[in-house]
Every structure is written in structure tokens, then in C-alpha cells.
Amino acid sequence: MTAAVRSSSSPALLDVAEIAISFGGLKALQSFSLALPPGSLSGLIGPNGAGKTTVFNLLTGVYCPDQGAIALDGRRLHGLRPHQITAAGMARTFQNIRLFGELSVLDNVQLACQLRGRPSLTATLLRTASAVARERFIRHRSLELLDVFELRDRADEPAQSLPYGHQRKVEIIRALATEPKVLLLDEPAAGMNSGEKRQLAQTIRRIRDKFQLAILLIEHDMELVMEICEQITVLDHGVTIASGTPAEIQCNPKVIEAYLGVDEE
């Protein structure tokens, strides 16, 4: 496979080698490979039900692949539970926003931030100096992150009371707060208007540059994907039908067929 070849030449941050999973008789994903170099921005596209979110669920440990291997920064992720994979440096957002609605925006971010060190239970109950310092540090980091996205003044509001676009942003901030090496964005532009989408494209680029991470995004909006992704993988019915630069993808007949159907004549 191309991914294996590429990964041998330049070490990939995330190396997915021929993973597959089936649910009962349904082969949801077959022999899927992917290599994300550090600082790359890649896209995963395909019609509805192609298996895109399944890929994310496999990468983040929600499902365990039937075959194949996933390695993050040289470390194999096989058999790790979702929170361990997050700790290893893989963070994600969700297609249908999954913020902790009743918690404040700040708490949402702090929860993710505390992954990189939180005071023990005894230290918390005794409120030791190191526990206080750690909690303050978590708050500080979280507010800093909210600042980057100009959301500090919403920090106290319950996450569910934010407008939709802001909620999407908070999801991304929350994922960033876990200090990931690889960021997986599941349809970040869903439900946004064209102005918001343009802003989002800038935001995604900015995140990549500022936080030095590899980004993989699932997106239905072709314009956005073609604009910002350097590498695109196309899935259809669980099979990788194409992979390459946006220009290559755009004129790939298989992709056109998958999206528009076969011309019967």
C-alpha cells in the first residue's frame, strides 16, 4: 500500500496500516491505510455511510479493529481504551456536538486540560499547595486557550446556551486542551453558513500552525476540503477508492462516480 511505502521514507506521526472492521456481516471498513506526517492537514471524504466516522471511532479506540495496526508517534495503540488513546495524543471532535451541556464553557475546557495532570483525591480534599497550584494552572491554561479563540467572555456560560458556531469552536478548543499530536475533526463545518465556513478554514490552518499538530478532518463541504487539505482520502462503502492531492482527487473518475453515480448511457 501507498501508506506503508510513504511511512518508510518519512516517519509518519500517525500510521494506520490496513485496518478493517465488520459489524456482523457488514464490512464497515476494509483495508484502510493512512499516514499523517507531522504538521499535515488531510481530509477524509466520501458519501454518507462510507465509513468515515467508523475510521474516527477506530482511531480513538471506541471500536477495536479486526485486523491491521495503528501507531501514533511510533507507539502501537492496539487494545488501548479511549481515554488512554487520548492521553497518547489523539483528540477528536464529534459530528453531533457532544459538549457537557450543563457545565460551563470553562469547565468543558478544564476537563480536557486536566488530562495532563490533576491533583490526587487526598490532595484535593486537604487542598494542599500543589493541588491548589495545579487547579490554578489548569484554569490558567484553559482561559489562555479560550483567549486564542476569543471566547473568554463566554467562559462562565453553560456550554449548551452558546450559539451553534461557538459550540463547534468550544469542541475544538476542548480537543486542543488535551494537548494532542493528532487532531481529528468530524464535520466541523456542518450547519455553518459560507461566512462561518471561511472563518473555520482560517481557524483550522491557524490551529495547525500554532499548535504544531497533524489534522485529519471529515467534511462534506468539498469547497472547504479542497481549499485547506493537502492530502485527501476518499472512502466509499468502506473501501478506499482514491487518495492524493485535491487536484488529483477532483479529476479521479472513481470519485466522480461515487458521488454522482454512473452515467447509464
Binding site: 492521553a87 457532544r98 450543563e102 457545565l103 486536566q114 488530562l115
Partner: peptide, 27 residues
């Protein structure tokens, strides 16, 4: 003290959304 701490936040996140909580690294 528990409620205002990281531990309490982790408890609350489990109540709100277990899947998201795991994805944010909560055991």
C-alpha cells in the same frame, strides 16, 4: 471541595456525556 476540583469535574462530565468524557481522557 470535591465538587470544585478536577475530580468533581470528571464526575460531572461522566454524568453529562460518557462518550465525550472518555474522549477527553477521563478514565
Amino acid at each position: 471541595r470535591l465538587k470544585l476540583s478536577s475530580t468533581g469535574r470528571a464526575f460531572l462530565s461522566i454524568r453529562e456525556d460518557e462518550v465525550a468524557s472518555q474522549a477527553m481522557g477521563v478514565d
